Simulated scan of single mutants.
Amino acid sequence: MTGIPTGSRPIARPSCRRHALALVLALGLLAPPLVLSAPAHAAGNLAVSPTRVDLGETGTATIAVRNDGDEGSVLQVSAMRWLDSPMPDALEPAPEMIAVPPVFTLKPGAQQVIRLALRDRSRPPVERSYRLLITEVPAPASGGAQSGGVRFALGFNVPVFQRAPGALADPVWTIQSAVGGPILAVRNAGQAHVQVSGIAVQDDAGRSLAQVKEAFYLLPGRSRSWPLPAAAKGGLVTVVADTNLGTLEERLAAPRD
């Protein structure tokens, strides 16, 4: 289950929902077919596939939500700009993206395809990053208000990218000196995101100094850093990172002070 910011709202206002639907249906003819074999992420009895969306040259895409439970669910969809990484909740509404349907009921065993479309389909100079929030509208638990029960809402926070033509990620690794000891830092100097699934830091003899088991995205221009043990000071350090670019290996000199 992914935390969803409160106060989310469907991106298409009621007054323009019919126009938005027509636009998405038109663009949907150009959207790539839904890949049902793509990895799915589950929250409770709900599952979403794919778990990451790439908007192609048409600026359109699809994503499916499936209900494997025994009860129906009402779901709300909100398209958001992703402002910072790795924080998936650094968001603001994205009126340039249409998500249809913005609200729907999903019966047990049913699947709903959500169609995404950008109003402006021009290609950006730097990759644009979004998050699609698919949130279950909470309903009273069995027994209703008299029992005081509440059914917790489930939700998904799916990354959506519009890549710039020829844009590539460029992770730059450094070891910096700080008051508390050396710090491993990485900055994405490229024009597209990099996805990191794990980092291992070794000394010159191949002994493990540190491991980062956290998986995260790093958007263009963003940085991350982690403290290293004092044993890294003044030596040669090898950083091995598992990423969507493959396994990256960088050999760095750690400062003494």
Results as ranks from 00 to 15, higher is better:
residue 14 P to W: 15
residue 15 S to T: 09
residue 20 A to C: 13
residue 22 A to V: 13
residue 30 L to H: 12
residue 40 A to I: 08
residue 42 A to D: 07
residue 45 N to S: 14
residue 47 A to S: 14
residue 54 D to R: 10
residue 54 D to G: 09
residue 59 G to E: 10
residue 62 T to S: 12
residue 62 T to Q: 14
residue 68 D to E: 09
residue 72 G to M: 15
residue 73 S to R: 13
residue 74 V to E: 08
residue 74 V to H: 07
residue 84 D to A: 14
residue 84 D to N: 06
residue 85 S to C: 07
residue 85 S to Q: 13
residue 86 P to L: 05
residue 86 P to C: 06
residue 89 D to A: 14
residue 94 A to M: 11
residue 96 E to C: 05
residue 97 M to C: 05
residue 104 F to R: 01
residue 106 L to T: 14
residue 115 R to K: 10
residue 117 A to E: 06
residue 119 R to M: 09
residue 125 P to Q: 15
residue 128 R to L: 15
residue 128 R to F: 06
residue 131 R to A: 10
residue 134 I to W: 12
residue 135 T to R: 14
residue 136 E to W: 00
residue 150 V to A: 12
residue 155 G to R: 07
residue 164 A to D: 01
residue 168 L to C: 02
residue 173 W to C: 03
residue 177 S to A: 15
residue 178 A to S: 15
residue 178 A to H: 11
residue 183 I to T: 10
residue 190 G to E: 11
residue 190 G to V: 06
residue 194 V to W: 00
residue 194 V to E: 01
residue 196 V to K: 01
residue 196 V to G: 00
residue 203 D to M: 12
residue 203 D to Y: 07
residue 204 D to C: 04
residue 213 K to I: 00
residue 214 E to D: 13
residue 215 A to S: 13
residue 217 Y to E: 04
residue 219 L to T: 08
residue 222 R to Q: 09
residue 222 R to F: 07
residue 231 A to R: 10
residue 231 A to K: 09
residue 232 A to E: 03
residue 244 N to P: 04
residue 245 L to Y: 03
residue 246 G to D: 03
residue 248 L to W: 08
residue 253 A to W: 06
residue 255 P to D: 13
residue 256 R to K: 08
